[in-house]
């Protein structure tokens, strides 16, 4: 563990109060943005809901990549499993209550997280990356082959969620789905702030810095990381379930390598190792994608590539990380 982490563990009551303030500030920023989005794009709530679901995926990726240092290009496996779990529960078992579907998605995500964590954490470096890529392809092929359950390449259609809590039906404009998504995101965000700051979260960051020292201290890096993978699976599964409920269809693209790579790009664009960074990256990337791919779909890939190279060269900490560093320096200078 580095000095910084030790220091953070020994934070004073004042520091804790300040963090609580930042939590509330973050929460109010999310809700503020949600209301602004609702007012600015009342006809494009589907995009905003999709953004919320992807934000959950990126948050979940941040837990394992940003906080535990696991390099993975296969994180959509957790998201897609959650989406399919919720969809299959609705189509094949008649569980159409949105909250129960959400629970199914979370459960599916946890199981997928356990599976992926157990496999991916067996290796480090390049083999780890290759394992994660092989896993996402395996999940994709499996979902494609199990067509009687998943609908194969046609996608799983016919998901008809009941009204939320018995009152709020999922309307054509996606208002209910949007509010549902934002509330879900706010709850998850609050819980994750607590998880990340807990002794368990500190342990994960310690493992990222130096796993051998953590083992010498008596903790098991492997077990801790698998637990974190399961939490991450729950978050990604919730995102997948939200996507299934709001779009009422689950496609194979939710289990694709492209989605995994894109979520990693969003995370790094915003800044790893910070929940705010994950949210910033998602919002910026998806708006950018929406505008550019509407204007000229051919140049979309070139633009993403150039954006990635630029971020690596000029803002290695990501957008949020760079802004936060500049703000901290400014505060220091003023003092």
């Amino acid at each position: 563990m580095t000095m910084a982490t030790v220091n953070e563990t020994l934070t004073t009551a004042r520091g804790n109060r300040r963090k609580l303030g930042r939590d509330l500030a973050g929460l109010s920023v999310i809700l503020g943005l949600a209301v602004t989005g609702y007012l600015l794009f009342p006809n494009n709530l589907a995009l905003l809901t999709r953004m919320t679901a992807i934000a959950l995926l990126v948050l979940s990726l941040d837990l394992v990549t940003g906080y535990c240092g696991v390099a993975t290009l296969g994180h959509a496996a957790l998201f897609g499993t959650g989406a399919y779990a919720a969809g299959i529960a609705a189509v094949h078992f008649g569980i159409t209550d949105p909250l129960l579907m959400l629970a199914c998605g979370i459960l599916g995500g946890v199981v997928a997280g356990l599976l992926c964590g157990a496999v991916i954490l067996r290796a480090h470096g390049l083999p780890q990356l290759v394992l994660s890529i092989a896993l996402i392809h395996l999940f994709h092929e499996f979902a494609n082959k199990a067509a009687s359950w998943t609908g194969g390449s046609d996608g799983l259609a016919g998901i008809a969620p009941d009204p939320l809590l018995g009152f709020f039906a999922f309307d054509l404009w996606g208002r209910t789905a949007y509010v549902f998504g934002i509330v879900l995101l706010a709850v998850v965000f609050t819980l994750l702030r607590l998880v990340v700051r807990s002794p368990f979260g500190m342990l994960c960051r310690g493992i990222k810095e130096d796993p051998i020292r953590i083992r010498a201290m008596g903790a098991s890096p492997k077990v801790t990381l698998v637990k974190m993978y399961m939490i991450s699976g729950a978050v990604a599964g919730a995102g997948g379930a939200l996507n299934a409920i709001s779009t009422q269809v689950v496609g194979l693209d939710s289990l694709s390598f492209t989605l995994s790579a894109e979520s990693l790009v969003m995370l790094v664009l915003g800044g790893t190792g910070s929940l705010f960074g994950a949210l910033t990256g998602t919002i910026v990337f998806m708006f950018f994608e929406d505008i550019v791919s509407a204007a000229n779909p051919f140049h979309w890939l070139t633009m993403v590539g150039a954006l990635l190279i630029a971020v690596v060269l000029f803002a290695p900490k990501g957008l949020y990380g760079t802004i936060a560093a500049v703000a901290a320096r400014w505060r220091e200078a003023r003092r």
Binding site: T65, A71, L73, L129, V265, T302, A306, L308, I309, P316
Partner: peptide
């Protein structure tokens, strides 16, 4: 992670 991102960025550019 940095290397993965940089080289994936180069790949995307070349594809585009």
């Amino acid at each position: 992670l940095t290397q993965v991102l940089m080289t994936i960025g180069i790949t995307f550019c070349i594809i585009g």
